[in-house]
Amino acid sequence: MPGKVVTITSGKGGVGKTTTTANLGTALVLQGKKVAVIDADIGLRNLDVVLGLENRIVYDLVDVVEGRARLRQALIKDKRHPELALLPAAQTRDKNAVSPAQMADLTNQLAQEFDFVLVDSPAGIEQGFKNAIAGADLVLIVTTPEVSAVRDADRIIGLVEAAELPTPRLILNRIKPAMVRRGDMLSMDDVKDILAIELIGIVPEDEQVVVSTNRGEAVVFDNVSKAGKAYNNIARRLLGEDIPFQVLEEPVEPAKKGFWARLFGV
């Protein structure tokens, strides 16, 4: 049975598509799956950097599509996790170097060999986005709890539905529980109310993500990191496990009781 092609997209830039792709890919490998990640952001490639594989790029996606390299030659195996392979984007070309049909063909080929093919989509709704969803079996939409990101996510959901793909699922990224409690940030319910699609993950804001990203390591190895745990949970949900959503509420300090209160046991 061929593997599943999952495209990670968002509409708005900077909400965490690439970080999500890298960590979800690694998390799926930790679950024992064979995973290929594709950087579809031609001209603005990042996924290689986040995965720490930048210096190993010889051939890229456009080389494969244009026949200068075979798919096998262009795939970079991660030495730390041999079950993870990266197909990097070309940096010197642009989105129009590839067509949706070529992308669908490429993801299809990879799906014969891998359990999961994750496609990291560029921001926007143009050719790059159309390429990224061309071969998708499932689309995951990343959004942050900001009005502009949610608005763009809504637009993308409409386009995914118009392309007659299954209804996408949502990853709510970089949520800050304290701000939500103060009413300064859209809550999970607000976002779900507007977008009306099923959630597959909530990732809390976590400084550790920046540290890991800069080092080219996935945050999913960090047992302490809340974001790492959230990505691991998304991977398991993708595999069909029923995992309750992490309770994001930071422990509320018990209210300090005053002298009189203690005295009278109130």
Binding site: I125, R151, D152, D154, R155, I157, G158, L159, E161, I194, A196
Partner: peptide, 26 residues
């Protein structure tokens, strides 16, 4: 029978009934 999402335009020459939301940008 669906939510009309951002960027989508529905035109019809008589009445329109929507079972779903009409989101911002639609």
């Amino acid at each position: 029978r669906r939510t009309v999402r951002s960027g989508q335009v529905i035109r019809h020459h008589t009445d329109v009934i929507i079972l779903g939301d009409v989101n911002a940008g639609a």
